[in-house]
Amino acid sequence: MIDLSNIHKSYITGTNRLHVLKGIDLHVKKGELVSIMGSSGSGKSTLLNIIGILDIHDEGDYRLNGQLIHNINETKAAALRNKFIGFVFQSFNLISFKTALENVALPLYYQGVSRKKRNRMAAEYLDKMGLLDWSDHMPNELSGGQKQRLAIARAMIHQPKVILADEPTGALDSQTSYEMMDLLQAINREGITIIIVTHERDIAERTNRIIRLRDGNIGDDHQNGIKKETTGVFNRP
């Protein structure tokens, strides 16, 4: 699903050049639940952004679902993101002047799905997240956990192959964080590949594979056997 080989990325600020990723090799198969850890500034977000084609690497090959991501323009990148990827962000990134329903429906809008169908599907996903009663509310009327569940609904509505989550629990308390992980695990069981960037060991512990970034390289990459059973919040097929 995701094949990175010898990925390099540098940031140039003024005269300084910061070499953030120094030849990353990473392969994530379909259906994996992966977490990426590492100290602050180690390049986790940079890596995730490259995987999500929000940013472009300087060197190396990146294949998404077998397609080489090379020399592509923003229009092409947008189409690929819309087709393959769902995003969940630490700061939710909901559009503040749109209702919960409209926010969830947004990826479908960019797929050209009709308004009626869009809204029906958005309502369905809101229902799955237990947020149907909140359809017409604005994001600022929701709690952190509700906002993140909204964001997850939005990340899933267009049925992407991969969900990329950059510290999805970073702004949540531990109880809500666990609920969020339950949700992501349940989604993963449907066959969707999920990559989570996190600082929290207990969050990483609930993924199947833990990757540690160190000095712009992969320092450690191991399968994680311990897999807690979940109480199914997200229990509908």
Binding site: E74, R81, L106
Partner: peptide, 8 residues
């Protein structure tokens, strides 16, 4: 956000 969601 719109771009991340696939806006060209």
């Amino acid at each position: 956000i719109r771009k991340a969601m696939g806006a060209k």
